[in-house]
Design a protein around this nucleic acid. Sequence first.
DNA 1: CTGTTAGCGCCTTCAT
DNA 2: ATGAAGGCGCTAACAG
Lengths: 337, 337
Amino acid sequence: MVTSRDVARVAGVSQSTVSYVMSGRRSISAETRKRVLDAIEQLTYQPNAGARALASQRTQVIGLVVPFGPGADTAGLLPFIETIASCARAEDHDVLLVTTDEGAAGLTRLAGRALCDAIVLMDVEADDARIPVAAALKVPVILIGVPDDSAGLHCVDMDFTLAGTLAVDEIAALGHDRVVLIGHAADVIERDINFVRRFQRGAAAAAARHGIGYSVVAPVPPGTAGAREAVERALDGGGRPGVVVPNSQAVAPVLHALIERGVVPGRDTSLIGLCTDAAAEATTPAVTNVSLEPRDVSRRAMEILFRLLDRGGEPPAQLVELIRPRLTRRETTLPAP
Amino acid sequence: MVTSRDVARVAGVSQSTVSYVMSGRRSISAETRKRVLDAIEQLTYQPNAGARALASQRTQVIGLVVPFGPGADTAGLLPFIETIASCARAEDHDVLLVTTDEGAAGLTRLAGRALCDAIVLMDVEADDARIPVAAALKVPVILIGVPDDSAGLHCVDMDFTLAGTLAVDEIAALGHDRVVLIGHAADVIERDINFVRRFQRGAAAAAARHGIGYSVVAPVPPGTAGAREAVERALDGGGRPGVVVPNSQAVAPVLHALIERGVVPGRDTSLIGLCTDAAAEATTPAVTNVSLEPRDVSRRAMEILFRLLDRGGEPPAQLVELIRPRLTRRETTLPAP
DNA sequence: CTGTTAGCGCCTTCAT
DNA sequence: ATGAAGGCGCTAACAG
């Protein structure tokens, strides 16, 4: 292993000078700097992360707690992880992965062993036992998701209320006189009360504002059979209700159940899904969707996190920050009247 | 921050005794051990990872290089990551995420800065520029995927040849007199030559053995339109060819294009996809599939990796290890004759 | 069975 | 503008 002392020897300077050249925390003569940089290149020196962390009390690592493990909502997770990793690297940090199934222990481990400088906590539930633990840590934490009580922690999430509003606004604009939400699976309702509640609140308010009918079919069992049954119930009321599916998992099954039933979205009725754009474009036909914009959410989360880390920048005053969703018209909604 | 010296003080022992109690590398009297453990609990002591790494030359971290970034085959990645993370934790290790778009630099960073003890390199291509770099590192590396030249590195992958064989064996057993592979997108063919080549070799050999017709439709442009066109070409030859789709992305579009065309898999013909079981069950109808078993591949990779790390266990003699795929009959294949 | 001690490689305050 | 030196918290000889 090549150390900064080796570099110092080759460059003919002291070890501390090498350190200062790397950190730039002291002015160095052009000539000395060059000799040091040349030596670094020649030896392909790289600083030892452990030693640096020990001496500087900074690991240059972001802890990322992701919802793996049994019963985790793992769909659409990758864009989050990918964006977070990319943002971290842009600030010369790495990402250490911890899974949700470790629970609060994962958090205390990250902080207690000084494995990271800051933590991103994903898949936060309405009443999440990890929140108080996270709030007591000495490292900055950012939540993705909005708990009932964020205990003073910053959080970023999709604006699900607005998502519900956008979807129902569109349904109303297309001339439907009622809208049916074909909702979440039972376990999601159990866990993410906040998420579901927020979307439904926005949808219901929009429906009332437009004076159109509003009903919810939930829970929806996963898979084809569950979708068929839900579609039956949705169409029970007669007419051609606009259908909103606030559940990525269920979008494709519901779409196909409708087609099977002879009610083709885009021709006979309108279907709007709540899912990523990629998922929306993967079905046949492509579904009009309200996108969760995981990349925007993650990017904003990392922005806040690094502001929390830099003693320079001020973190945003408001704790809860909601990212605007976006509706994209595709093939499953009627043409505008 | 609470250190092992604090623990030592509270327990009334020397600092090194605390260290030895934790590592178990020396016999300690029951009474002393208890006093130390009590103090650890009382102070909720956790060892500093950086200090430990510096002193022991072991980080307890596994570097995981994942195919994020532009043009990466990101589908079905989560089961790999999840399994790798879980296996790592089972051996008291953490996982540091590095993305493919860093290229070989990511590898040298992981090793050069002593960020990890070993590396899992995913999404290895047939002719991968990172292989020679990885082989020159001083940390153990395991590849997921088989390059043309593994440069002495261990690798684990699906047995794609066998996957092709299984799929065509089934098509033949169902009485079809020819099989069409509706293949990969152009970019995948460009990148993963090995993967495609292996599957096709297995499929072609099986077709020849059974004396049935064999043809390939590729490249297949992504999305609905590409699938429709591919299906047209596949059906061109007349009759009811068995269809094999060795591309998770294309399975659903091809399925729906067939149905749209009035050729319903499971009734009029047979469709077999190469994809995860989860993906196979998500479509309507559920597709008969050959599964990639990402969990088995990852588990085996981690097994080998930890054997490489332990100076005790011997790593397997053979460098390339192929995991057997499994065919699961679902709704898109004809009933057995 | 336990304590003392010498680093691990780097950062940073002093001193010049 | 540069060196010298102490210490970050821990492991692992070395000495009893």
